[in-house]
Amino acid sequence: MALNTPQITPTKKITVRAIGEELPRGDYQRCPQCDMLFSLPEINSHQSAYCPRCQAKIRDGRDWSLTRLAAMAFTMLLLMPFAWGEPLLHIWLLGIRIDANVMQGIWQMTKQGDAITGSMVFFCVIGAPLILVTSIAYLWFGNRLGMNLRPVLLMLERLKEWVMLDIYLVGIGVASIKVQDYAHIQAGVGLFSFVALVILTTVTLSHLNVEELWERFYPQRPATRRDEKLRVCLGCHFTGYPDQRGRCPRCHIPLRLRRRHSLQKCWAALLASIVLLLPANLLPISIIYLNGGRQEDTILSGIMSLASSNIAVAGIVFIASILVPFTKVIVMFTLLLSIHFKCQQGLRTRILLLRMVTWIGRWSMLDLFVISLTMSLINRDQILAFTMGPAAFYFGAAVILTILAVEWLDSRLLWDAHESGNARFDD
């Protein structure tokens, strides 16, 4: 018995066209964080690309023209004298008006014999932002004059995390709450300039795509075929072959399989920071003279006294001054041990922890910024005066060393310790 099946006739004509040209192939790229070699397709503007294995951002879609970056830099340069030299806060102490600005706080630190601690604050609040705007201006002028731009481009990517104007702005709020127990506070004209400078700096850093600047100024022929001998440069993120001198053909720094002496430098910085954190938390970090009496505060006791007036601000200072430094030390110690013992479990967790400490590390400088600003506000000789204690130097040095330890660690070593050939990683 035959089955009668109805015929289905399409209502619209289906047209099949042959592909007349070869589909576009992607360029081969190595991930600078996990060293995976993959094919990167062509990316349009405002599109980002991520590593298929570790999800690290390979290409950032946010990109401004150099002219727009230069305009932002010149605007920031105009704001800087007002943000640093004009009063941020006014207080009335014992019937006398006192003005506080950024430069005055750094000068008070240096004047009291601790120039190293003052230079830490100076670099993060004044030096690094000033280098940022002058570097962008150098790129703008240098591109037109045919100057060598490689050193500036190499420095810009590392400079971003040292620009800490946003953290200093939080420190202004913390210092205001600490001082309000002794005097009446009012915002100064410099505060508005400083807030504007923070906003412009944040926007500029978020749109400063150094890798795209490398592509514009020093374009290189990408690798179009897969080759395990391809290496990625950690300076400019170019994937290719080393030249005859073993250097990256684009930025001219040595092109090595792994960062040289990464573990040794990381261990040295980490152990030194552990040693410095002990006096930083045991010795007094601030000293207040009130009517001839002397009151010393460690980091913890200062947080407890701050909690009596504002528990939320005390929580912020606790996280930045105690929780973050010790968390960074514990995480980095764990990561280094996992590399030495070739741990194969929990790779995803370790990668996330490394990215976390990379982002939060700079916030530990908050305590030094609060001390710097408070020193310029309260300084009335023996009637009422505020000065920093010996722990300030140890704390600042420990924070900087932990930042350097994270920067010096080559994250690809975590993958080397893991089993080879993993296309995915999980716990």
Rank of each mutant, 00 (worst) to 15 (best):
A2S: 10
L3A: 15
I8D: 13
I8F: 11
E21G: 11
L23K: 11
P24D: 12
R25Y: 14
Q33P: 08
Q33W: 12
Q33G: 13
L37R: 10
S45H: 12
S48T: 10
Q55R: 09
I58D: 03
R59A: 12
G61T: 14
G61F: 15
W64R: 06
S65M: 07
T67Q: 07
M72L: 08
F74I: 10
L79C: 03
M80P: 05
P81R: 13
P81E: 13
F82M: 09
A83I: 03
E86K: 13
L88M: 15
L89R: 06
H90D: 10
G95L: 06
A100I: 05
N101A: 04
N101P: 10
G105A: 05
G118M: 02
C124D: 05
I126A: 14
I131F: 02
T134G: 13
S135M: 03
Y138G: 04
L139V: 07
R144M: 14
R144A: 12
M147V: 03
N148S: 06
R150N: 07
L154M: 04
M155F: 02
R158F: 12
L159C: 03
L159H: 03
E161N: 12
V163Q: 06
D166A: 15
Y168F: 14
L169E: 01
L169V: 11
V170C: 14
G171C: 09
D181H: 02
Y182T: 13
A183W: 10
V189L: 15
L197P: 01
T202S: 14
L208V: 14
N209P: 08
E212K: 15
L213K: 15
E215S: 07
E215Q: 09
F217G: 15
F217C: 14
Y218R: 08
Q220P: 06
R221W: 10
A223S: 08
D227P: 12
E228I: 05
E228H: 10
K229N: 06
H237V: 07
G240Y: 08
P242H: 06
D243S: 05
G246F: 11
P249C: 06
R250V: 15
L257R: 03
L257V: 08
R260D: 04
H261I: 02
Q264G: 02
Q264I: 02
C266P: 04
C266G: 14
C266V: 09
C266T: 08
L270D: 06
L270F: 05
A272M: 01
L276G: 10
L282W: 10
I285F: 00
N291C: 11
Q295E: 03
D297V: 04
G302H: 01
M304W: 08
A312R: 15
V313N: 15
V313T: 12
V313E: 02
G315I: 08
I322K: 03
V324E: 04
F326I: 08
T327H: 10
I330F: 14
V331F: 14
M332C: 08
L335M: 09
L335T: 12
L335A: 11
L336C: 10
L336H: 06
L336V: 13
I339G: 12
H340F: 11
C343M: 14
Q344M: 13
T349F: 13
R350G: 12
I351D: 12
L353K: 12
L353A: 14
L354G: 12
M356K: 10
R362V: 14
V370E: 00
L373D: 11
M375V: 13
S376T: 11
I378V: 14
N379W: 02
N379D: 04
Q382L: 11
L384I: 04
A385M: 04
F386G: 00
A392D: 06
A392Y: 01
F393S: 05
Y394D: 06
A397M: 05
I400T: 04
L401T: 07
I403Y: 01
L404T: 15
L404N: 11
A405M: 01
L413H: 15
L414A: 09
E419W: 15
S420R: 11
G421F: 15
